[in-house]
Nucleic acid binder design. Structure first.
Ligand code: MN
Ligand code: MN
Ligand code: ZN
Ligand code: ZN
Lengths: 136, 136
DNA sequence: TTGATCTTTGCAATCGAGTTGCGTGACAAG
DNA sequence: CTTGTCACGCAACTCGATTGCAAAGATCAA
């Protein structure tokens, strides 16, 4: 896995104290994180600073956001080489039991046959159910 | 298409003035409606009444909700015979240009090969891009 | 018909995630 | 050192969603 410094370097985002701790936190988590999650984890860092950091990361394709229906936007670090193009699309899974959301990078993404003259630019795909830990 | 009365009857939801106008409005629209959309269309009906009506409709599978990332939950009338089971899953399309969201009932839903021991219960699938009206 | 009971509605208040304005401080170029 | 740019922290604010409460309406048994 790439380090915080390497990622920021590659994506041409200046390294700062807040960016380092936010990105390090995101990398350390298996589940996608909400602003509140990060705020709770980084108690000495201001919410708006985290917020703007997330915006910066998203604009520079360091992370991508997921709308899982929980009412809070979740963020996850992009896979190495990701450009957030349609080719980088992947499913997400939201567990109804443990409320974790994560990227299913290994599930092949099926091409969708849209009606005539429709053009896909992005997608937000969230499968909901029970994760392997919660499915008895 | 079924009438308002027929739908309420089938789904065992008591008919009231607010429910009638809300459901009639939803049926009359081609795009999925937000609470605000409905509020604007039904200027004499209170927001909280519309809100609770939507909850009632959703609980009774008269409508389903769509999170398209616009910041407002959208609602669309379920297809005839829909039980909001996995078999009733379908894609949604959000147009980045005209901001309309609608159900793609005619696009076949691809089965997703989840990892071992994962169980799908619902899904929120939103394809974003340009609709046929906006794709020049 | 009447009174008790349950449901629906309207209004106002509240919640909370997200967002923004602004002053301070860090840093870098000149 | 001087100046400009950018990141940061704090507080205030936005706005969609949600709730408490009392009035109005529907239901039903007697
Ligand atoms: Mn992802
Ligand atoms: Mn739909
Ligand atoms: Zn789980
Ligand atoms: Zn369009």
């Amino acid at each position: 896995m790439q380090t915080v410094d390497e990622i920021l370097k590659i994506k041409n985002v200046k390294n700062t104290a807040v960016r380092t701790v936010v990105l390090r936190h995101l990398l350390s988590q298996e589940k996608a994180q909400s602003l509140k999650d990060i705020e709770n984890a980084l108690i000495y860092t201001d919410r708006s600073s985290i917020f703007r950091t997330l915006k910066t990361f998203e604009e520079n394709k360091i992370i991508h956001s997921i709308e899982d229906g929980s009412g809070m936007i979740k963020y996850a670090v992009c896979a190495e080489g990701c450009n957030c193009d349609p080719k980088d699309l992947h499913y997400h899974f939201y567990c109804n039991n443990c409320n974790k959301t994560f990227c299913l990078f290994d599930v092949p993404f099926q091409n969708i046959e849209l009606p005539e003259n429709f053009k896909m630019q992005q997608a937000n795909m969230v499968v909901k159910g029970l994760c392997n830990n919660c499915n008895d």
